[in-house]
């Protein structure tokens, strides 16, 4: 990860947090998150709604002061130098920040002004970005006439106008169809190389996290594991076995007692990551045929990683622990 020479490269650490915690009143949204994000990487923060992603982004963008712990963004302290930190960040949210009634170019000029980009530089920058994103012919089109995918791309242009060192993407492909999603990712990759920046992506979609160079899994405010996706999945072994059953706890106890393998209960399933799955499954069927509704053996995915650490399905969270941040009008 370290390309350790030259002060103008993206090498080094983009973001570092130590024991970062935040509570909204009595609701604990982040718990002791210690995280290092290397410059030039693409970091995916994977977790369901309410796992702390939005709170983490609010702290990075200096909109929220953490209850405790430290943050450094490109070595800067957001509390001490909020404007310097914001200048380093480009932000793209789930809802585009573009005005429907304005043209693409009007929107971009407007946001360029907010970031203090001088107007001569801005014209050139807009031209370059629109070209790169294949939007040159839409320059004078009203945003409301653009498809969802194009709007998202135009919004990405907006986030990049001031040449941020770090791009924050919050659920950036929500509402896009698969083709538009694919196109968005293509563009994102190219742009990251050209702009030499760090990308941090908050998502609840496994498919998006898999495209990142690094993944951090958030569960109820805690960073449970961090690493390259391939490593996270291979750490679970070559195969994972999932058993569906009407009584997961009972089955779990019996398997552990009789076969001595560690199991994990995930909703109505029992997940087993150790041992030789094929042989185990055969023996399990012999022993508990009446209790197993279905069984799956598969190569571990990030979903399995999530389940192994969190104990529930990525997007089917148990309802007993609501930790959604307040004042957030998202559905």
């Amino acid at each position: 990860m370290s390309h350790a020479n030259g002060s103008h490269t993206t090498a080094g650490t983009a973001i570092e947090t130590k024991n970062l915690s935040h509570a909204y009143g009595i609701q604990q949204a982040l718990r002791e998150v210690s995280l290092t994000i290397a410059g030039g990487s693409m970091m995916g923060l994977l977790g369901p709604n309410g796992s702390g992603k939005t709170t983490f982004f609010r702290i990075l963008t200096t909109l929220l002061q953490p209850s405790s712990g430290t943050v450094r963004v490109m070595g800067l302290d957001p509390n001490a130098a909020p404007h310097a930190v914001r200048q380093q960040l480009g932000v793209v949210f789930q809802d585009t920040a573009l005005d429907d009634e304005l043209t693409v170019e009007e929107n971009l000029r407007f946001h360029g002004a907010l970031y203090g980009v001088p107007s001569a530089v801005l014209s050139e920058r807009i031209g370059t970005l629109l070209d790169r994103f294949g939007l040159t012919d839409r320059r004078s089109a009203y945003v409301k006439t653009l498809s969802g995918g194009l709007q998202r791309r135009a919004d990405l242009c907006r986030g990049l106008l001031h040449r941020p060192k770090i791009l924050l993407l919050d659920e950036p492909t929500t509402g896009l169809d698969p083709a538009a999603r694919h196109a968005f990712w293509q563009t994102l990759r190219t742009v990251q190389q050209q702009e030499q920046m760090t990308i941090i992506l908050a998502t609840h979609l496994m498919g998006e996290a898999e495209r990142c160079t690094d993944v951090g899994i958030l569960d109820r405010g805690r960073l449970v594991v961090q690493g390259p996706p391939a490593q996270l999945t291979s750490d679970l072994g070559t195969e994972v076995l999932l058993l569906e059953t009407p009584e997961p706890s009972a089955l779990q106890d019996r398997i552990e007692a009789q076969f001595g393998v560690a199991t994990q209960q995930v909703g109505a399933m029992v997940q087993i990551t150790e041992g030789a799955k094929q042989e185990l499954l055969t023996s399990l069927y012999d022993a508990f045929a009446d209790q197993i509704t279905s069984a799956t053996i598969r190569k571990p995915t990030l979903e399995d990683v999530f389940m192994a650490y969190a104990g529930y399905h990525l997007n089917r969270r148990p309802t007993d622990t609501p930790i959604a941040p307040p004042a957030n009008a998202r559905s």
Binding site: T61, T62, L63, P82, H83, A84, R86, Q87, L89, V91, F93, D95, A97, H111, L114, Y115, G116, R158, G159
Partner: peptide
């Protein structure tokens, strides 16, 4: 939402 995150 974006403007409040601008250095402004």
């Amino acid at each position: 939402q974006v403007a409040v995150a601008a250095p402004l």
